[in-house]
Design a protein around this nucleic acid. Structure first.
Lengths: 193, 193
DNA sequence: CGCGCGATTGAGTAATTTCAAATCTAGTGG
DNA sequence: CCACTAGATTTGAAATTACTCAATCGCGCG
């Protein structure tokens, strides 16, 4: 399926747009292709766009002083990714967004997003509702983090991203769960039902 | 200061509204008073409003099967609170929102919020940007959770809510950090600089 | 075939939990 | 003013969970 079609279906799940309106909206998105391992955003970068995934899988992650990686988000097709902290507060990036697999994305600049939100009330609504869901998902993950041990969190993750299991190396899953690779590895046999 | 004035200043930090528009917006908010300990939302409730805090302090928390409490959010004046999962997905509440102190809030029903968002583009913008910030804050907390030990998280919390230290019992702070009361208690002398 | 990376396993250590008991504190009533 | 109680906090000690470091295993690819 074409990028255009994927975005159209994605938007139409939340808002109604005429073909004309959609064409106008779409004209602000810039298609980009990346290879596995390419970084889209790196710490220190000026961040002025967010990315809508068409194909492939991205991750956004923070790297601490000990070079330990913490994954904020995996982004599969129809998910959005960026360094939202940098985007919103207009500061340099503190996280990396890169490609777990070869990927195709649509990039939307901050300026264009604000322009579209100005011009089309329904686009503003789309972004409001999209972030609402993201907010709730983040809190859900927070709860999973506090309430569950590593095993429980792993199960929560597989519920949320069932495809992920086969696509990404286990060490990335560990970095998402906030446990060491070794702990993740031990989960399967140690405390299984 | 009057509730009306507080809300007005809060909105005007993000969007511009004429006095007339603000008066119209404000007419949809319902002032409510609560006593310390009162529950505003309880698990199982139908949730059809969110609450803007004028005075006092609320908390929203999830209680697990072992009756252990996990605090999602403290809400001080000019903060918003509700069960956002229930609100967005139109399901029964799974969290409790209650009053740590006597409190005054302005309640805005879901229907009214959507109506205002329809009628006033700038209100829709307000809610979009507000949730953006909440989303980023939630991810920041997630990182703090994964990257730091109990001590580091405690320091992060005091940076975010410095007033909190004097207002709320320590056990609530523990429930926010996701550690036991005992561990929180031991932090001060154990690993202090 | 052998290199190299990811995944697993083992052993010892550090952080946090649980359960239990001891303290402390604020508010109440005599 | 004092004694008393309920709730909150602190402390102790043992048990658990996850971590780190180190070694080994497994497998795809040149």
């Amino acid at each position: 399926m074409q990028a255009e079609e994927i975005l159209k279906q994605h938007l139409s799940k939340t808002i109604a747009l005429t073909d004309e309106q959609f064409a106008y909206v779409f004209s602000h998105f810039k298609p980009l292709s990346f290879k596995k391992g390419d970084a889209i955003i790196s710490p220190g970068d000026k961040v002025d766009a967010e990315y809508f995934v068409i194909k492939g899988c991205l991750k956004s992650f923070y790297t601490n002083d000990d070079l330990k990686m913490f994954i904020l988000q995996f982004a599969m097709p129809t998910w959005w990714a960026s360094d939202y902290h940098a985007l919103i507060y207009q500061v340099k990036a503190t996280v990396t967004v890169d490609c777990i697999t070869d990927a195709e994305v649509l990039s939307l600049s901050s300026d264009d997003r604000e322009k579209l939100c100005d011009e089309l009330h329904s686009i503003e609504r789309f972004f409001r509702l999209r972030t609402n869901k993201g907010y709730v998902a983040a809190h859900k993950r927070l709860l999973s983090m506090m309430n569950n041990d590593a095993k429980g969190r792993y199960e929560d993750l597989l519920k949320l991203y069932p495809e992920l299991y086969n696509i990404v190396p286990k060490q990335l899953i560990a970095a998402y769960l906030g446990v060491s690779r070794e702990t993740l590895s031990r989960l399967s046999y140690r405390k299984n039902a």
